[in-house]
């Protein structure tokens, strides 16, 4: 990932956790201290949240410095870096696109598990994921899908007795 994007992502992540800590701080006002002490349900979260914000500020400061450096480098050596980036940006895009697609597939799998149950959801996920990962020989994909689903069903539902999701449609 490019340094600039990385720094921005890091700033975003630290800000997100700062807001989580702030949210916890606000919510924790509902919890009282034990009488005459500083002990209570809010003590530990407030302490940890406060420390987290301090570390987050340090991280954000470092990331901002890197962001500035990346920008200044971009101006000075624009030509060289542009040539270098043609290849790497292309690769980065492909890589990030694949991860994003995998995440979308997982969200769909989660929804399908809830609605149509384990068997149908898994039979759909395996070939989709293999396609995404560029394993596209039809026969092996069918064999892997059928055997893999059967193995997982046997291992979890039959041997371990884990009731796999039936889905709202069939449940």
């Amino acid at each position: 990932m490019r340094e600039k994007n990385k720094a921005m992502l890091e700033i975003g992540m630290n800000l997100l956790f700062c807001s989580v800590a702030f949210g916890m701080y606000m919510v924790s006002h509902n919890y009282d201290f034990l009488e005459g002490t500083i002990l209570g349900a809010r003590t530990f979260p407030l302490l940890i949240g406060g420390i987290l914000v301090v570390f987050a500020i340090v991280n954000i400061t470092c990331a901002v410095k890197r962001l500035k450096l990346a920008k200044s480098l971009g101006k000075v050596e624009a030509k060289d870096i542009h040539e270098e980036r043609v290849g790497s940006v292309f690769n980065i895009l492909i890589r990030e696109y694949r991860v994003l697609s995998a995440v979308i597939l997982l969200v769909l799998y989660f929804l399908l598990l809830s609605f149509v149950g384990f068997l149908i959801a898994t039979v759909l996920l395996i070939p989709a994921m293999l396609y995404l990962l560029e394993y596209r020989k039809p026969l092996p994909v069918v064999v892997i899908t059928v055997l893999g689903t059967a193995f997982l069903f046997t291992a979890f539902q039959v041997l371990l007795g884990v009731p796999l999701p039936d889905g709202l449609l069939f449940g």
């Binding site: 997982l106 598990l113 996920l125 994921m129 893999g148 796999l164 999701p165």
Partner: peptide
């Protein structure tokens, strides 16, 4: 590797689900 990665995904989902049979746990895992 593509086959291995695919099955790690499914194992992770089933593993998270199996303890309490809870889709909430799958969400937390994700």
């Amino acid at each position: 590797k593509s086959v291995i990665v695919t099955f790690i995904f499914i194992f992770a989902v089933l593993g998270a689900y199996s303890m309490r049979n809870s889709m909430f746990d799958v969400l937390v895992m994700g």
